[in-house]
Design a protein around this nucleic acid. Structure first.
Lengths: 233, 233
DNA sequence: CAGTGGTCTAGACCACTTC
DNA sequence: AAGTGGTCTAGACCACTGT
């Protein structure tokens, strides 16, 4: 792991455990850099991550302030994003509705930057949290890039498999979020009625080398999910 | 404007105008750094912005590749976010439903980091694009931080006023997105029926010095808006 | 193997806040 | 005036890609 990420994680935990209480001023960037035996540039990069994630507020000319961070839904989104670590793994399971290998369509090749006729996994899963249907996910992944996916992996964690078994690193995700009316599958698998709005997240996820490895659509009940994120501008 | 932002804008325009055609390899980071008379670190920062915005793909060890970037909805979101520049200003207008100054409630003080009994603007606007209702926005802003808001400013651009008249710089936004059922106002102002899903964006926007200056809820018809964004992880 | 991007450092100047 | 974060530089080493 990179130095700036390590530092960010360590500081995050200290804020979580109120070693730096919310609202209080933290040591200056320079002092923190000394403490972690690093340069100010690297320290600044670590702090920028914490700022983006909402753990600190940086006031130029004044200082760095710890911040309370509501974790609830955030964690769900992190989990959803296939993120690495620690969700209160409060009873998360997958119900595999279908799992096939087939040839990619033209538009799918384009999205995943594949050659014609490349093979892909085609997966439909129902996600269940705390015994209630949580999401309905349509996923495709290139077989060549992510070999060895099977039902066991699907039941455990695809992202865990990619990182721990294949030793690949997850990169960026490009997402599109919109609301939608429920279709027949939503009504069946998300426990919806006809007038229950659905939140859909479409995403293309890439490895750290820039290659797209997943295109997915995830559909959620409107009252069980929200997306939280930070942005500049 | 910062050097890295300038460089990013300039390169973005060159990709837009296909001086670097989509899919083609661009000059290396080092060559670009020379061209813009800057260091590799600064060049890398500029490129990182373009990567986040989806204009290029960076393949470590290989090179930088230009990318086609669908602009349509993206632009709407940028506009919505109150972003600085250039949307095809294809007939955007605001219908002010109400505009008051009042004392902030307790939860509002917390969100905007205000003292008790601080004064805020309370604004409800219907946003109209190309003659059709596009969004319904509930906005509050502290009067002390953003003095001088009036109906003229609301009809023009609040963000333009903040930057050009007050000479303040916009910082981060923390957003929460979810789907919702329409309420009576949505039905009236968004031209909805009872079973039309609504997409809501809640956001707290801060100035570059970290002070929150806006809390808003924007509600959209499900079929006229999507949010697009990039994220690491 | 050479080329490329990712990361890191030490030092510098600036604009801003705070006193 | 002193302290603080934002930005920038030149140079360095590494892991990776592509040949």
């Amino acid at each position: 792991m990179n130095k700036y990420e390590q530092i960010a994680f360590e500081l995050r935990d200290e804020i979580r455990h109120q070693i730096y209480p919310a609202g209080e001023k933290m040591p200056s960037e320079e002092e923190l850099a000394k403490r972690f035996s690093t340069s100010r540039v690297t320290m600044s990069r670590a702090l920028s991550i914490l700022k983006d994630q909402g753990w600190i507020i940086i006031r130029p000319g004044s200082g760095i302030y710890a911040r309370q961070n509501e974790t609830d839904i955030d964690v769900q989104v992190s989990w959803y994003a296939g993120l690495k670590d620690r969700l209160k793994d409060s009873d998360v399971s997958s119900n595999i509705i279908s799992f096939d290998i087939r040839t990619a369509e033209e538009d799918e090749c384009e999205r995943l930057e594949l050659k014609k006729n490349a093979k892909i996994y085609d997966i439909i899963r129902q996600r269940i949290v705390d015994g209630k249907p949580f999401a309905l996910e349509y996923t495709i992944m290139p077989v060549r890039l992510i070999p060895g996916i099977n039902e066991n992996v699907l039941h455990a964690s695809v992202y865990g498999y990619i990182q721990n078994e294949l030793h690949l690193t997850i990169g960026n995700a490009r997402r599109r979020i919109h609301a939608d009316k429920p279709d027949a599958y939503d009504i069946q698998y998300l426990d919806c009625t006809k007038d229950t709005p659905v939140l859909e997240i479409e995403q293309v996820v890439t490895l750290s080398n820039g290659k797209p490895f997943e295109y997915s659509q995830s559909r959620f009940r409107y009252d069980r999910t929200a997306i939280i994120y930070n942005s500049r501008g």
